[in-house]
Structures are given as C-alpha cells and as structure tokens.
Nucleic acid binder design. Sequence first.
DNA 1: ATGTCGGCAAAATGCCGA
Length: 263
Amino acid sequence: MKIATYNINGINGRLPGLLRWLDEARPDVVCLQELKTSDATFPKAAIEEAGYGALWSGQKSYNGVAILARGNQPVETRRGLPGDPQDVQSRYLEAAASGVLVGCLYLPNGNPQPGPKFDYKLAWFRRLIAHARELVDQTEPVLLVGDYNVVPTDDVADIYNPRSWLDDALLQPESRAAYRELLAQGWTDAIAAKHPGEPMYTFWDYFRQRWPRNAGLRIDHLLLNPAATRRLKDAGVDRAMRGVEKASDHAPAWVTLAAKRGA
DNA sequence: ATGTCGGCAAAATGCCGA
C-alpha cells in the first residue's frame, strides 16, 4: 500500500492537478496540508468522485489538513494536538485508514526568527513530541507524515545550498534538535532511510527560479514507527508535480508498505 | 532587500503568510 503526503498550498486553486495526481499515483492514503479553505468550502464531492473518502480540518485562508483514503472512509482518532486548548490553528488530524494509523501534520513555519512565530513553532514541536511518544510503540503501523518545516541537515540530500537560508526558521539548530529528538523515540525517516545521501527535495520556493535550478529543500517527511518500518518497501518524491501548471511549491512524498509484516 | 504564489477583503489593488 502507498501512503503519501502533499502540501497542496490551496486545495481549491489546485484541485485539477490534485485529481490528476490521485488518478495517476493512486495512493491508498493521502495527507494534505495547507488546504487554505474553511470546512464548508472543502471540495468533498470532487474528492469522493475520485474514489476517496475524506476527513478534513479546515481554516479560512491559512493552514488546514486532510486525510484521504482510497475506497473507504478514514476513521478519525484525533483532531488537533493535545497540550494547548488555546491553539485554534488547523494543523493536526489523525485517523485509522486502510490498516494503518496516520497523523497528518502541518508544523508551523516559524519565520521570522527569533520571535513569537518561532516560539510557537518550537512549542508546537514539543506538543508533537509528547503525543508521538504515545504512538511510537503501538504494535500496528503508525505514520506521522506532513510538512515538518524542518531541513534536517545541511547535507545536499536535504538542501541544495544552505547559504541563503542560514537565518531561516527551517534550518535553525532548535528546529533540527527537535526533529532529531522526535526521531530518537524510534521513528524512521523513510525518505532518508531509502535514499541516503541522495537529493530528495520536496519543496522549491516560487522565488528566484528555484525549481528550474533544482534549488530545493527536503521538508516534507514520512516518519514510521517500528511496526511500519518493518513493512517499508520503498519511498520517493513525485518531483514531476512541481513542474505542472499551477503547481504547489511542494511535491508529494510517499512510501509503500508491504501488505504483511516481513513480506 | 529581493523575488512569486494563493486567498481574501474590498476595490481591479494591497495585505498576509509562506
């Protein structure tokens, strides 16, 4: 089975491209981020017509996450991270779908840093780490996937060149330390595990001709608990989606899992 | 400092967030 994550950057503005990709890539479970739409204007009918059941947590203009499942309805297990009842931003949704538990997350960007937005990013990360602790040792496959807004290292696998991003929240030592702390619970970064040392970018800024120059960053990640890692077959990025008309600034990233443990 | 997008309010342009 195939599980994908895609920061769509406005689901209604990019719906035709999304539907084409669903038809071609045929992922079983899809986590979307940056819907940029309220609950009422989520394109439920078009998604269902494409053969997917859906759950979504919308927010007008900003944020927003959704979980799609091919041929069935995902069963919601959590909406929003625990730990801050004041937090009204739609950035986390969790569901059981097609035999796996999937957390769909849109971690705060955190720019400019330092400042309140960076503080919010780190606080949100603390809440994610605390919640992930409750999930990692489950006996069934669990995946925490989405736009983490963290470039894990300065290696060319993760960024074309850190020079113009040194002050960016995506590269800060605190952001990277939090990401490492999460992994240290026992999660596997599937893209890094399957493609060590290989440029596996998932985001190319609209500015400065960054897509034509392949000046990308790896910020969308699929983290697998040990039960899911045992079934990990392959991982990749659908780079071509960054080159289509009206493309999101992100490309979809995905993993495939064997149907049964050890298969 | 700059660059380019989508969404949105409120006017065919400017702002925000990324």
